[in-house]
């Protein structure tokens, strides 16, 4: 679990939802969580790039995770959030349905991803945390934005 910061076997995660599934990202990779703001479309960019936003004077791209994971799209609502992450030196935003909580889980409950468990390409999945009544998918955000063959971005 080198992509996650584990202190004495405890992982600190920010969890969010996309459709019916629950995901998590290492808390140290999340810069901030914002409400939806006006997004400017960028022509001819990869389809999962929703556009760019103004983050206090910085222009950053925003990725629609639903599009990236090929989950049917949904209009943004009052619980939609843009999570600002730092991926390989670039600041980017990801649109999620809602941000749930900050969670501390023991690293030993995280299991490697089972084959073909979800419709997300297994590349992005770092592991699955099994909690009492729920499953949380741990994302490897560095792999999220690595398709360098996509024009323009990254």
């Amino acid at each position: 679990m080198e992509a996650f910061t584990a202190t004495e076997g405890v992982l600190q995660l920010v969890t969010f939802t996309l459709g019916s599934e629950e995901y998590a990202i290492d808390i140290l990779r999340v810069q901030e969580i914002n409400r939806m703001s006006s997004i400017t479309m960028v022509p001819n960019s990869p389809q999962y790039v929703e556009g760019v936003i103004n983050l206090r004077g910085k222009v950053i791209p925003v990725i629609n995770l639903r599009k990236k994971f090929e989950i049917p799209e949904k209009e943004s609502d009052s619980s939609s959030r843009i999570m600002i992450l730092e991926i390989r030196g670039a600041t980017i935003g990801i649109i999620v349905d809602s941000v749930s909580e900050v969670l501390r889980v023991a690293s030993n409950i995280v299991e490697p991803p089972p084959p073909m468990s979800t419709n997300i390409a297994a590349d992005f999945i770092k592991g699955i945390a099994k909690l009492e009544d729920r499953l949380i998918i741990l994302l490897d955000i560095d792999k999220l934005i690595s398709n360098s063959e996509e024009s323009g971005f990254f």
Binding site: V59, I60, P61, S151, G152, F154
Partner: peptide, 13 residues
């Protein structure tokens, strides 16, 4: 302003 992570001027931007 540069767009973070955007490298292509090929797109006409």
């Amino acid at each position: 302003k540069p767009i973070e992570g955007y490298s292509g001027s090929t797109e006409g931007l």
